[in-house]
């Protein structure tokens, strides 16, 4: 199980330490998202998780995706969530009844899933070391988007347009 040791041989120790710290913060914040009794706090802990994900992207040499993550998730999606919270709730504060009656059922399900996935992942990729690559040039991404992934790109534009129109239609008052 060298996989779980942060400072394995011939790997960049500083990178590993940074990964470990960010991963710990992310896991704690994610646990708070699903356990806190205050919806606004859940949204703010979700910001911590999303920022941690962006930091992990930078560690994994995916700068453009990290910037998109910050712009789209922390910038836009979180504002949507806060709007959703404030438009559907009378008071801001901790409240009861955020969990189902059978919420405890989720714990064994999640633990079982985690055990299964961890076993499979460790079994398959036990000692695969990530290569040390420099930052991904954004031209490489745009080349992919505008050549072989062009039709999915256009389709995605239509999905976004349809979602925007659909959201307006659904949320209208009349």
């Amino acid at each position: 199980m060298t996989a779980l040791l942060l400072a394995a041989e011939d790997v960049n120790v500083a990178q590993n330490v940074a990964f470990g710290i960010i991963a710990f913060i992310m896991i704690v914040a994610a646990l708070r998202v699903v356990t806190t009794n205050n919806i606004v706090h859940a949204a703010l802990w979700l910001v911590v998780v999303l920022a941690g994900v962006a930091a992990q992207y930078i560690l994994a040499a995916a700068e453009f995706v990290a910037v998109s993550q910050v712009l789209v998730y922390i910038g836009a999606v979180m504002v949507l969530f806060l709007f959703g919270i404030m438009l559907t709730r009378a008071q801001i504060g901790s409240e009861k009844g955020l969990n189902n009656k059978s919420w405890a059922l989720g714990i064994p399900v999640a633990l079982l899933l985690l055990g299964l996935m961890a076993y499979v992942i460790v079994d398959a990729y036990e000692d695969t070391v990530l290569p040390d690559r420099g930052p991904t040039p954004t031209e490489a991404l745009s080349d992919q988007f505008l050549s072989i992934y062009f039709i999915p790109f256009i389709a995605l534009s239509f999905v976004l347009l349809a979602a925007a129109i659909g959201a307006i239609v659904l949320a209208r008052k009349d």
């Binding site: 699903v34 189902n100 989720g106 714990i107």
Partner: peptide
């Protein structure tokens, strides 16, 4: 898995 727990547990 944390997300799956949240989907199951939250109301």
């Amino acid at each position: 898995c944390i997300g799956v727990y949240g989907v199951i547990a939250r109301r």
